[in-house]
Amino acid sequence: MSLAMELQKNGQAETFGEDVRTEGIGASTPDQKGGNDRQGGNRARGLLRIRGGRLGIIEILALAALALAVLAAFWPTLLTGVDPLTGDPVNRLLPPSLDHIFGTDHLGRDVFSRTVHGSAQTLSASLAAVAIGVISGVVIGLIAGFFTGVLDAIFMRIVDVLQAIPGLLLSMAVITALGFGTINVALAVGVAAIPSFARLTRAEVIRWRSAEFVRAARADGLSTLSVLARHILPQVRGPIGALVALEFGSAVLAVSALSFLGFGAPPPQPEWGLLVSEGRDFLAAAWWMTTFPGLVVAAVVLAANRISHVVNSEKEFR
């Protein structure tokens, strides 16, 4: 192995703050390093790769934040007993206190309870959006990548177009056609997520389609479909998983932005974007009405991005 390669390896490890990569560099995988290779392989197959041998505190926090968000979405009453819709006119615009940790709004409703109950709408819309993006994107990508030619050209031009229009504008166009509401917002955000999944899947399929071990599998007598299912899909799974987490974060942002603009659920409903929007008129008087729901959105997005990063580096490691 040349010095340049060795430096590259260690330099990479150094700059990314991750383990020293013992992965062989293609043909030059050294025999003597077999022991190291083995070690790396075992680690990569672990449930969650932990960077630098230390327990990734940030990853654990990210997982905890996502778990909390899911809990809030499905069992909101576990986190708060206060009704999100009924206000108490006496307790209007109260700053955060032990009774109301996020304060109360202009109608005396508990902001924390509204945030907790809002997660159901926002998160399920985001999840639905990602599901739409993944399913359509991966199907398009698989077809385009595996059956080159006319199908590929047609699909990819459509994907080009979807990508040429900024995601938020594309979602807004879909909403114009479908009308307002959480379900339509989910659909609109999902459509905007298709191109990235389609492109990634296609790129990965094309990359692995000509891989030497895939050629070998054909020589081993496997049919086209078996090759796709047994050798190519397992390779594509990892990168897609990373993109799912990343796109989930973007979907949360897009869904709450659309609901902030007033395209989501109508006002009494608690939706994260809507909560922030409700607080606009009280910026000077009640900072907590905008600050806390916004922070929750940021926390969930950050957590999703972090998880994506972990999944992604595990992919690179492989």
Binding site: S277, V301, L302
Partner: peptide, 26 residues
């Protein structure tokens, strides 16, 4: 310092724009 700087972009893309605007206004 490198870790801190490298973490900034991740933070930047995660903050909802509408919220950042309102925070700045506030």
């Amino acid at each position: 310092l490198r870790d801190a700087l490298a973490a900034l972009p991740g933070l930047g893309v995660a903050l909802p724009t509408f919220w950042v605007g309102l925070m700045l206004l506030q």
